[in-house]
């Protein structure tokens, strides 16, 4: 029972981790909390749905096309709505992302309707795999595999590639980064595109379980904020660890205490972390010298 709860919690948690990773990437490069992260993922999932249902493209093709769409959508939002802000403060930009969230929410409702749809997926929620004593549904197995691959890929990218290092450098000193030759505005757009892709993957993976409607990402996004806070808002590895542990914690509370409290755990975690360890589990925030 215990191991079972942990493994299935880990599957949910890895989705939170994907979303949280997107939040942290944007936060690290532009000091903005992206409230539109969830809606971008939701719209991308609807796009995948349209490709599948209306255009009858096979699953893998629809998946890839939706990823490309979300990449472009993320970059377009940054270029069209955030970049034009003159002398922006982080707070002003955060308000813009709230506006973007509302626009996307309304647009999705207008185009696809507010009724709940079933997302057709070749992955079954009822077919199960047995790993020893642990039972894992096919969907969860794929969620786990895909998110682990993605997360490892991005952690490597941010740690070891020139572009990844530049993304982290820009948030600390944009002027100096420009002097080193980094094309700052384009790199920021790219982080938005990457974050959107992470969200889209999470959305498409989660859609067969939660069904599809404009509200689908509201809950996961709030959990992702909790996961990012838990891991330390500026640590990529922290987002992954935070997501995983939040998923497990949630499942344990749901399993041993009461399912009603499952969703509250995330907020309890936010409050607790901010009181006890504001920089999160893995956030190493360096205090600037005077």
């Amino acid at each position: 029972m215990f191991v079972q709860l942990i493994v299935s919690g880990l599957a949910t948690g890895s989705l939170y981790a994907l979303l949280a990773l997107g939040l942290v990437i944007i936060y690290r490069t532009s000091n903005v909390l992206n409230f539109a992260q969830g809606e971008i993922a939701m719209v991308s999932t609807f796009v995948a749905f349209t490709f599948l249902e209306t255009l009858h493209i096979p699953y893998l093709g629809a998946f890839l096309l939706a990823i490309v769409t979300s990449f472009l959508l993320g970059a377009a939002i940054e270029i069209a709505l955030l970049r034009p802000a003159r002398h922006p403060t982080p707070l002003g930009l955060i308000i813009i992302t709230l506006g973007v969230q509302q626009i996307l929410y309304g647009a999705a409702g207008w185009v696809w309707g507010y009724d709940t749809k079933v997302f057709p997926s070749p992955l079954s929620d009822t077919k199960i795999h047995r790993l020893g004593s642990v039972v894992l549904s096919e969907v969860n197995l794929w969620i786990l595999t895909a998110s682990i691959i993605l997360m490892v890929a991005f952690l490597v990218f941010f740690r070891y590639t020139r572009l990844g290092v530049a993304m982290r450098a820009i948030s600390q000193n944009p002027t100096t980064a420009r002097l080193m030759g980094a094309r700052t505005p384009w790199i920021v757009s790219l982080t938005w595109a990457i974050a959107s892709v992470l969200g889209a993957v999470a959305g498409i993976l989660i859609a067969p379980v939660t069904f599809l409607d404009p509200n689908m990402m509201l809950n996961p996004l709030l959990k992702a904020f909790a996961a990012a806070t838990l891991g330390g808002m500026n640590s990529l590895a922290g987002a992954v660890v935070g997501g995983g542990s939040l998923g497990i914690l949630e499942n344990l509370v749901g399993g041993y205490l009461t399912p009603e409290l499952k969703d509250s755990v995330a907020f309890f975690v936010i409050v607790l972390v901010l009181c006890l360890r504001p920089s999160g589990l893995m956030g190493r925030h360096y205090r600037r010298r005077v």
């Binding site: 100096t176 030759g181 190493r284």
Partner: peptide, 25 residues
């Protein structure tokens, strides 16, 4: 290459990553 006054380093990157940034182009 312009070397700014006042030690404009990237504080939260390692020394190694700072050097890598220097070679960005």
């Amino acid at each position: 290459t312009y070397i700014q006054e006042g030690r404009a380093i990237f504080e939260e990157l390692t020394v190694d990553e700072n050097l890598l940034m220097g070679a960005y182009v």
